[in-house]
Nucleic acid binder design. Structure first.
Length: 601
RNA sequence: GCCGAUGUAGCUCAGUGGUAGAGCAGUCCCUUCGUAAGGGAACGAUCGGAGGUUCGAUUCCUCUCAUCGGCUCCA
């Protein structure tokens, strides 16, 4: 939904939300209203209720709401004094809290009556508005889900019951919205991941632990291969580090006290030494840096690794491939002098651009994660260090001309960060890449280099992961491509489909011809009709089908060359500009195919 | 972790207080087919797990695990 339309709908949706809590008050005695807004998608409202509110209650709630709408009650605004507001809402701590805030700001309290003001049966509610003039003008609505939500979004507070709903001007718009939700579910990476045999999760192995199936592994390895080639060209050096580490390393880094609950518990060796599964690769790379003294001439030193990490994410957080407990990061740490840091960070941003162009990723935004000014003790390092790091980052951002949303409170504990944020088809937001300028860990790990004056200095460290983790990035790519991977990433690039087993031998020759050229090729010689084989390959999103029948076999004998008919996964074959006839020589097709793979188009 | 929901063959789903049914997939047979589902047969689940109520539970209850929708969190 476009923003303009959403803005226009807000008064209606807000009024619909009032109708909802009016109905709720009727149906659930003792219920207290907390807060709720109109959103871009609809509205929600939080209730404090001791009993259970279930989705099964929706029909009766919707019925009561419809009665209120049909009654066409006026919605009337009234300004009241703070004192009166306090009296009016004395039994509702949530409203009282709000009245206090209004008082602090020196503003006036406004209430909206549903029904004639001050008449028996009319309902006043503290609200800033705006609303539409009467309930009768509320269009078709639907309650969508019930959920728990902490008061003020703070998990230390009481959990309230939140009801989500939406409302439109016309039935068609509501139906279209509901249809779009269903449609987008078809692109959900969890669903496509299963249909396309990309990954599975086994209860026996454990929640949040991805098992890559053969087809998924091809995608993973192609992606890693691409990153490895690119990083080599961009001046990175590959390293490899173990999956477990003694606890001391994480005390040095400060991660252990900070993230203990989010790490798998330690293994105890020889009854004394604790080993942890590594939750991040940074300290290992630091130890590699530290293994020999460094000269300024060696900087910038860019150490990179596909490092596998384990984090004990909260059970409620797990989400397909996007939020997992074991993952392999496209991680690197760039050790450089302070004067190199800006350019190095700019290069990291350019590397993202390079990747995103190839994947055609356009739907994302960037967040500059800064400290929460109210909770500075949450972060390590001194004020000066933070200011310097932020300054370097801003300079780099300025040089790249990239638009960024500043986000207070989302810095790493050791430095500010730049996140590339995408959303899933279900509307969740995830960072697919996170990057930091870190002036903290170098000191913490006592990392040094000798500068051109022969003096010891501490390097700046840039943390970067343009392709995030294999799991999250490929999860994202599945949805981004709707399963239709470009040929270079497709698990099967060409499927050879013989029309009948009379041409099986010839089909095998064709199969071998592709195989010899390192094309990932499949041969469907099952006892099925041609239509069924085409359907199967198309559902598997195989880019090219080579259909082999008597015609191709015969032409091949005449020309002394292998001849195939090519059909693409979107159903084109004849008349497609690349293939001027139904049948083409395999060499010609191979040439085009290899170019397509090579250029990653 | 918290609130709510769900959990039946590989997948999608139906069903019942008296130990389960369909479609698709897989297997076999027939068919040998020209651009998104040819026909048939047999096979396949002890109904997420544990405990309880009951003469008897997949169906009711409790606990537990997992998943889903949110909240909170994300080095």
């Amino acid at each position: 939904m476009d923003k303009e339309k959403a803005e226009k709908l807000k008064p209606v949706r807000h009024s619909c939300e009032h109708v909802l809590h009016l109905a709720m008050t009727d149906l659930f005695p003792g219920l207290k209203r907390a807060m709720g807004p109109a959103t871009n998608e609809g509205f929600y409202f939080d209730f404090d209720y001791d009993g259970k509110i279930k989705e099964a209650d929706f029909p009766k709630i919707e019925k009561r709401m419809q009665e209120i709408i049909n009654a066409d009650l006026p919605i009337v605004k009234e300004e009241i004094s703070i004192e009166k507001a306090k009296e009016m809402f004395k039994n509702n701590p949530y409203k009282l809290e709000w009245v206090d805030e209004i008082e602090k700001k020196g503003e006036k309290a406004t209430i909206y009556w549903t029904g004639e003001p001050n008449k028996p049966g009319s309902d006043p509610d503290l609200c800033k508005g705006p609303h539409i003039e009467s309930t009768g003008k509320i269009g078709p609505f639907k309650l969508l889900s019930v959920a728990g939500a902490y008061w003020h979004g703070d998990e230390k507070n009481k959990m309230l019951t939140r009801i989500y709903g939406t409302c439109f001007e016309t039935k068609e718009e509501l139906d279209k919205y509901l249809w779009q939700i269903e449609e987008s579910k078809k692109r959900d990476h969890r669903r496509l991941g299963e249909q396309l045999d990309i990954f599975t999760i086994s209860e026996e192995v454990g929640p949040g632990l991805i098992l890559w199936l053969p087809k998924g592994t091809i995608i993973k390895e192609e992606l890693e291969k691409f990153a490895k080639e690119t990083e080599r060209n961009w001046g990175y050096k590959r390293v490899a580090t173990p999956h477990i580490t003694k606890s001391g390393l994480y005390y040095t880094s400060g991660h252990l006290p900070y993230y203990k609950d989010d790490m798998y518990p330690p293994m105890v060796v020889d009854k004394k030494e604790e080993y942890y599964l590594k939750p991040m690769n940074c300290p290992h790379h630091h130890m590699i840096y530290k293994s020999k003294p460094k000269s300024y001439k060696e900087l910038p030193l860019r150490l990179t690794e596909f490092g596998t990490c384990y984090r004990y994410e909260a059970s409620g957080e797990l989400y397909g491939m996007m939020r997992v407990r074991g993952f392999t990061q496209n991680d690197a740490h760039i050790y450089c002098t302070l004067s190199q840091a800006v350019d190095e960070f700019v290069d990291v941003m350019k590397l993202h651009e390079h990747y995103y162009k190839i994947f055609g990723i356009k739907e994302y935004h960037l967040e500059l994660g800064l400290r929460d000014p109210k909770k500075k003790n949450k972060y390590h390092g001194d004020e000066k260090m933070w200011e310097q790091a932020e300054d370097l980052m801003r300079k780099a951002i300025k040089k790249t001309n990239i638009k960024m949303v500043e986000q207070e409170g989302s810095a790493a504990f050791y430095g500010p960060k730049v996140d590339f944020v995408i959303h899933t088809v279900t509307g969740k937001e995830y960072a697919i890449s996170t990057n930091q300028i870190d002036l903290y860990m170098g000191k913490r790990f006592d990392l040094k280099y000798i500068d051109d004056q022969g003096k010891e200095k501490t390097p700046a460290i840039i943390h970067r992961a343009p392709l995030g983790s294999d799991e999250r990035f490929i999860g994202f790519l599945i949805e981004h491509y709707a399963g239709v991977f470009p040929t270079w990433l497709s698990p099967v690039q060409v499927e050879v489909v013989p029309v009948s087993d009379k041409v099986e031998e010839y089909a095998k020759k064709v199969y071998n011809a592709f195989s010899q050229e390192n094309i990932r090729v499949g041969l469907n010689n099952k006892n099925e009709t041609l239509g069924a084989k085409i359907r199967e390959a198309t559902l598997q999103k195989v880019p090219f089908l080579c259909i082999i029948g008597e015609k191709e076999k015969q032409m091949s004998q005449e020309k002394g060359n292998l001849i195939v008919s090519v059909r693409t996964r979107d159903g084109k074959n004849l008349g497609q500009p690349r293939f001027d006839r139904g049948q083409i020589e395999i060499n010609k097709f191979l040439e085009d195919l290899k170019t397509e793979i090579e250029k990653k188009i």
